[in-house]
């Protein structure tokens, strides 16, 4: 009993001693706005599987022997996708992945624009206009501004990863999107 009492007193004493430090930390955290701000903490593992399926179920006019993905901007998607490709070695789909500059986006079949480089969409769109290139963004709502598919976290659906798809943008690029993709997409104009 005495041991319990001493133990409890020690815990309480230790905790109370740290009140000013915890209080300071709390204040610092409250007013920390943009310093570490990121719109959402994406699950890149999930994004990687989504992107793989987008490629799998899209008909490129040039055929699908070897698809090259160009990534604009840093994103943890890249290592996750490489890990996924290792698991998919036996698949018939051959995919290569590399970082590119916006000016190189007409040299690949798929362009993935990282959240932090979303402002590059306009340059990519101008450069690849009407070319059969699947443009995917990690930030939502960009399929309204020229992207084919925009991944996003849906606040209204328990923060699930979902995607918006613009059929018009895909058709304009001569890309045929199969039902597997369309059935679960949020279609935008």
């Amino acid at each position: 009993m005495l041991y319990l009492k001493t133990h409890f007193t020690n815990i309480l004493h230790h905790s109370l001693k740290n009140v000013p430090i915890y209080g300071l930390l709390l204040l610092l955290r409250c007013f920390n706005t943009q310093l570490f701000a990121q719109s959402y903490d994406y699950d890149y593992k999930e994004n990687a599987v989504y992107v793989y399926n987008f490629i799998k179920y899209t008909d490129f006019p040039s055929g699908k022997d070897n698809i090259s993905i160009g990534v604009i901007g840093y994103t943890p998607f890249v290592p996750e996708f490489r890990r996924l490709l290792l698991k998919k070695k036996s698949s018939n789909l051959s995919i290569t992945l590399k970082y590119i500059k916006p000016s190189e986006s007409n040299t690949v079949d798929v362009v993935l624009i990282a959240v932090g480089s979303s402002d590059k969409l306009r340059d990519v769109h101008l450069l690849t206009n009407k070319l059969p290139i699947l443009i995917i963004t990690e930030k939502g709502n960009l399929s309204r501004q020229g992207a084919c598919i925009s991944l996003f976290i849906d606040e209204d659906d328990d923060f699930k990863t979902r995607y918006q798809l613009s059929i018009r943008n895909c058709n304009a690029r001569g890309l045929q999107i199969s039902e597997q993709i369309l059935n679960n997409a949020i279609l935008v104009r």
């Binding site: 593992k45 999930e46 599987v49 698991k87 998919k88 923060f159 990863t161 597997q180 993709i181 679960n184």
Partner: peptide, 21 residues
């Protein structure tokens, strides 16, 4: 992060997943 293997999942299956966020 969890260790769940998603690699063979279809879009249909992914969309039925509980939020991983």
């Amino acid at each position: 992060r969890d260790t769940m293997d998603l690699s063979d999942m279809s879009i249909e299956e992914l969309s039925k997943l509980k939020s991983r966020y």
